[in-house]
Design a protein around this nucleic acid. Structure first.
Length: 257
DNA sequence: AACGGAACCTGAAAGC
DNA sequence: TGCTTTCAGGTTCCGT
């Protein structure tokens, strides 16, 4: 959506309302300077990062877990949880886009060079696809449990706790299994499970809004995430939950081996 | 290098 | 009812 709102536009003004979404040591004034007057050339996504290429440089936006871009009118007052505001002229239209983030886990940056973290991202399952052989080789080198390895953005970009949980359930793999113990066949199943979970979520997202599971009124659209204690959709036994790599992990002890 | 655990932050939900 | 505590998530940092 952000792409639709600002592509080919010229950034008229920038306001950073809360500097906590910037990198440590970064100051709003420098960022404003880097963006003002620049033209947006394209918007790309890899994993949880957006990279907005400008005629000179680029800016990066990570949505954390509660971040979203929203379109507003330039006349509108700051929206609830607004942290950054960009006013853009696209053709004859004046648009104002706002970065909203209640929990401030997101990030906003306009570095001179591409962020190292962006360059280090693994392949994005939807943008780049998953090369099962390459993934299998990568997993072979990791002794850690498969679930925390999937959360490593250098392995695959964009896999968070929800998709790792869902993908492993679909692949019928126990999240505690050592990553190195997965066969190539099982790695293929995980790759398909992850893609399926991501695509399902993408299909669910409406034209112009993101609804997070945590938001009131949103019902749980996931197979097992958030459903601990409820019947497994496959075998009907109650789903278990444990902490793995510091994150809650729902699983079925019968279906996932 | 690889790993575990705590910290960051705040709204919602659960507990009292 | 209203206050307090706990929990969730993605990432970074610190110690081992």
């Amino acid at each position: 959506m952000l792409e639709l709102w600002i592509d080919r536009g010229r950034i008229e003004s920038v306001a950073v309302h809360d500097a906590r979404i910037l990198d440590v040591g970064e100051v709003p004034a420098r960022l404003v300077d880097a963006l003002q007057g620049r033209r947006v050339q394209r918007v790309e996504r890899r994993g949880k990062w957006l990279r907005v290429a400008l005629d000179d440089g680029a800016f990066f936006s990570h949505l954390g877990m509660t971040g979203k871009w929203a379109e507003a009118s330039p006349k509108d007052e700051p929206l609830r949880f607004e942290r950054v505001r960009l006013d853009v002229v696209v053709g004859r239209a004046k648009r104002s886009v706002r970065y909203l983030d209640s929990r401030l886990f997101g990030r906003f940056a306009a570095p001179a060079e591409d962020l190292p973290i962006w360059r280090a991202l693994g392949p994005d399952p939807l943008v780049d696809g998953i090369d099962v052989g390459a993934l299998h080789a990568k997993l072979q080198r990791r002794k850690l449990a498969i679930k925390p390895v999937l959360l490593d953005q250098k392995v695959l970009a964009g896999i968070g706790n929800i998709y790792a949980t869902e993908g492993l359930f679909t692949a019928r793999i126990d999240p505690r299994r050592a990553a190195s113990s997965l066969t190539r066949l099982e790695t293929g199943a995980v790759a398909r499970g992850l893609r399926k979970a991501l695509l399902k979520s993408l299909a669910r997202s409406t034209e112009d809004s993101i609804t997070y599971v945590q938001e009131p009124g949103a019902d749980n659209p996931f197979l097992i995430y958030g459903n601990e204690g409820m019947p497994c959709p496959r075998c009907k036994r109650p789903l278990g939950k444990m902490v793995l790599g510091g994150r809650g992990t729902v699983f079925c002890s019968r279906c996932q081996r």
